[in-house]
Design a protein around this nucleic acid. Structure first.
Lengths: 346, 346
DNA sequence: GACAATATTGTTACCGGTATCAAAATCCAC
DNA sequence: GTGGATTTTGATACCGGTAACAATATTGTC
C-alpha cells in the first residue's frame, strides 16, 4: 500500500488537488479530469459524484498545471501603447467582451509607444505561453518579429494597415481616413487646410495620416504649405496651442484638421476664448469620435472609427484560430470601414 | 544509456526546453535553472556557457512550468467595474507601472458593477493561481469572500473604505469626499445644494457619497430636500438632464454637486445652452478632476482624488506581501488624501 | 447467447520546470 | 599537506494536471 506520496508537511489549506477530489468521489483522477473538461465522456452517475466531491472540497482547478500538461493555455496577451488613453480602451473592451465569453483571460501591458518596450512585453507574454497576441501597433523590432514567428502564436495587429502584416490585421487605414477628411474639407471649399498631429508618436500611424492629408491636397489641386503642418503634444492644451501657432504663421488659415487625441476640443476652446466663430473664422475637424465632440458647441465634425468593433473582430479571429484552428484566417487583413461625420464645426 | 525519454515526434519547432539548453552547454538542467534564477549560485564560467547556450538556442523560459513547480506565480489579477471608464484607467496605470518593474504581469477583467460577475472573475483568477488580487470594489458575494480567504491570496480593495475590509485597502473615503465638497459649497453661501448621482451603480460608493452630502447639510444647518437629489445615468447627456430636472422641481436651486463621471461637464454645457451664468445662476461642482474640467469655461470646481497614486500604492503593498512576505501589511487600510479644488464654477 | 463494436474507466508516462538532498570540487587555516 | 567547512554541481522526485493507451463494462446484432 503506497502511503502518501508527498511527505510535504506544509501543504497550505488552500489548494485541494484533483486526486483529492478523485479519492473523495472514489474514482481515478483521470475521471475527474474528464468530468470537468468533457462531461459527455463520463457516465451520468460518475459525473454527479465528481461534481459533488468538487463542491464539497471546494476544489479549484489549476490552470497552470492544465496548460502545461495539455500544451495549450487560455490567456491572450494584449499590448497597447497607453493604458489610460480612451482611444484604446474601447478596443480593449471589445476584445475583452469577446474572449471573456470563451473563458479566456486577458493579460494587458503598455508599451509606451516604444517598440523596444513592446519587444520585452512580447517576450514576457511568450514565457507565459499566451495562446494569442493582440498588438495595437504595426511597428515591431526585428527580434520581436522573429520571436513571434518562432513561437508560432497567432497575432492580430491593430491601429493601422501595415505594408507587411505579421499575421492577421484588423484596422482602418490611417492614410485613407486622413485622406477622406481632408477631401471632405476641400469639397466644403476650405483652401488653407492646416494639419495638426502628435509629435510624441513618430510612428507609421502618424506618417500615414500625414501622407493621406498630402494625397488629398494633391487631388484637390491645393498647394501644400509646410507652415500649415503643426506637430504638437497630447491633451487639450496642445490643441489650443496648435491654433495659436498655425494662426500666427499662416493668418489666412481657414480650417484645422486635428489628427489625434482630443486636440480638436482644445482647439475649439481656444477659438471660443478668442471669440472666434467656428466654422466662419476657422473650421475644425477631428479624427476620433469621442463623446465630447457631440456635446460642445458648435458640435465637431469628425471621423467615426469603429474602435469597439476592431477589438471584437480581433478577438473573434484570434479565437477562431486558437480554438477551431481556422488556418484560412492566417494572414487575413480586415480593413474596417470608417465614415466622416459632418457636424457644425466644418 | 537512456535514450531520448520522450518519443514524441511532433515537437513544435517553437519551444526549446531547459534540458536542450543544458545539453548544449554541457551542464545539468538544474544548473541552467540556477544560472537564470540565481546567477550568484553558479560559477562565472558556467553562467557564461549557459547564457550563450540560451542565446544560441533562443530559449524562452516557461512560466507555467516554473510557477507550477515553485508554487508561486508572477501574475496579479485586477478587476475593475468598467474597463473603458477613464476614472479607473488612471488607477490601472499606476498599478501597471509598479508591477511591471518587478516583472509581474497583470490580468485584467471587468465586472460590470456586478458582484456575481466579480465572483466568477475571482474564481477564474484563482484557477490561474494569481499571486495577488486588486479589486476596485468593496462589495463582494459571500462566496467570493470565502474563496479568497481559502486561497490565502493577498488582496487590495480600492474605491471606498469598507467597514469590513477583506485584507488591505487603498482608497479615499467617499463619505468624507462628498462631505468635504458639500461643506465647501455651504461655506460659500449656497443654500439649496442639489446632489446628482448615478443610479446605475447602487453600490456602497454611491451610498456613502449621499451619506456624506446629508451629513454636511446637517452640519451646515441646512434642511435636506429629497427633490434636490437627482439620480441619473452616465455621460454628458445625463448631466444636462440633471440640470433640467432639478431646476424644474426646485427652481430656487443655487448649486449642483455632480457626484460622478463627467456629469458636471454635461451640466455646464446645459447651462451654457440656456444662457445661464455659472456660478451666478447656479454653481456647479464635480467629483473627479478630469482634465476637461480645467479647460471649459468657467473652469469647474472639483475634488482631486489621487487615482494614479491609489494604483501605485496598491501595487507596492501587494508586492511587499508577495515578494517580501510583509505580513505586517495584512489588513492595513490606507485612507488617501483628497482635496477640494476651487475654480470658477462655484 | 456469442462476439464484435462501442462506451467507460483506469494506468502510466510525461508536460517543463524546481526543491531537496547528495556528491564533487574548492577553499581555508593550521 | 590534511581535515573540515563551504561552494558548486548533479540526480531524483515531484508540482498538478492530461495524452495515450490498456483494461473493463456495456451495447447491439444476428
Amino acid at each position: 500500500m503506497p502511503r502518501q506520496k508527498s511527505p510535504k508537511n506544509g501543504r497550505v489549506g488552500s489548494s485541494a488537488r484533483m486526486r483529492d477530489v478523485a479519492k473523495r468521489a472514489g474514482v481515478s483522477a483521470m475521471t475527474v479530469s474528464r468530468a470537468l473538461k468533457e462531461p459527455s465522456k463520463v457516465s451520468p452517475e460518475m459525473l454527479e459524484r465528481v461534481l459533488n466531491a468538487v463542491k464539497e472540497i471546494g476544489y479549484l482547478p489549476n490552470h497552470l498545471a492544465s496548460s502545461l500538461s495539455s500544451n495549450r493555455s487560455t490567456t491572450i496577451g494584449l499590448i497597447v501603447p497607453s493604458i489610460d488613453n480612451s482611444i484604446y480602451t474601447q478596443t480593449v473592451k471589445g476584445l475583452s467582451d469577446v474572449i471573456k465569453r470563451s473563458g479566456f483571460q486577458l493579460m494587458i501591458a503598455e508599451s509606451g509607444y516604444d517598440t523596444n518596450e513592446e519587444e520585452e512585453l512580447i517576450t514576457a507574454f511568450l514565457t507565459h505561453r499566451v495562446s494569442g497576441l493582440v498588438l495595437h501597433s504595426t511597428e515591431h523590432t526585428p527580434q520581436a518579429i522573429q520571436k513571434i514567428k518562432k513561437a508560432e502564436v497567432p497575432v492580430v495587429e491593430n491601429g493601422n494597415i501595415p505594408a507587411q502584416p505579421l499575421d492577421m490585421v484588423v484596422s482602418y487605414s490611417n492614410h485613407d481616413a486622413a485622406y477622406a477628411m481632408t477631401m471632405h474639407l476641400g469639397r466644403l471649399g476650405y483652401k488653407n487646410i492646416a494639419f495638426a498631429s502628435l509629435h510624441s508618436t513618430h510612428n507609421d500611424r502618424s506618417r500615414d495620416r500625414l501622407a493621406g492629408y498630402h494625397h488629398a491636397l494633391r487631388d484637390l489641386g491645393l498647394e501644400p504649405n509646410p507652415k500649415l503642418i503643426v506637430e504638437t503634444s497630447r491633451g487639450l492644451a496642445a490643441g489650443a496651442e496648435a491654433v495659436t501657432r498655425v494662426v500666427h504663421s499662416v493668418p489666412e488659415v481657414d480650417a484645422l484638421f486635428c489628427a489625434g487625441d482630443v486636440l480638436a476640443v482644445g482647439a475649439l476652446f481656444e477659438c471660443q476664448r478668442r471669440g472666434w466663430s467656428v466654422p466662419d473664422r476657422i473650421a475644425i475637424a477631428s479624427f476620433d469620435d469621442v463623446d465630447l465632440l457631440r456635446h460642445v458647441s458648435p458640435t465637431v465634425t469628425t471621423l467615426r472609427l469603429p474602435r469597439y468593433d476592431i477589438g471584437e473582430r480581433s478577438g473573434q479571429m484570434l479565437l477562431s484560430r486558437i480554438i477551431d484552428g481556422a488556418e484560412h484566417l492566417r494572414g487575413s487583413v480586415v480593413d474596417v470601414k470608417f465614415e466622416v461625420i459632418q457636424r457644425e464645426s466644418a
